[in-house]
């Protein structure tokens, strides 16, 4: 049988890889994709907890569904913002979008 720890370790790894994409990649669209990876890692955890700890209670799955909703909304808004910035400044590089500084 597969213990819970396996899922959790893979999810943690996935989360760290997503985090690295968010922190290190220049391209804003890559940052967005990194966030998707992190959200998926969270979702894996939620579903795994549901299955291993409280299978009779569906709340874990409901939470995961909520995360889907949030992820979809986030991607839609994020991409809209990126498109606008690209039109204005002709770039999607995160370290060039630095107007809000001292």
């Amino acid at each position: 049988m597969i213990p819970l720890s396996n899922y959790l370790i893979v999810a943690a790894g996935l989360f760290s890889i997503g985090l690295y994409a968010v922190l290190a990649r220049k391209n804003a669209i890559m940052i967005l994709m990194g966030i998707e990876l992190m959200l998926n890692a969270v979702n894996i955890n939620l579903v795994a907890f549901w299955r291993y700890l409280t299978p009779e209670n569906v709340s874990g799955q409901v939470f995961a569904a909520m995360v889907f909703v949030v992820a979809a909304a986030e991607v839609a808004v994020g991409i809209a913002l990126i498109m606008t910035v690209y039109r204005r400044r002709d770039t999607v590089s995160a370290d060039e979008i630095n107007l809000m500084k001292w």
């Binding site: 985090l19 922190l23 290190a24 940052i31 370290d95 979008i97 809000m100 500084k101 001292w102």
Partner: peptide
């Protein structure tokens, strides 16, 4: 300390993490 506020979002996130 003003150097910290670089406007670079990723730098902020590193510090946050």
């Amino acid at each position: 300390i003003r150097k910290i506020q670089s406007g670079n979002i990723q730098q902020y996130m590193i510090i946050a993490v």
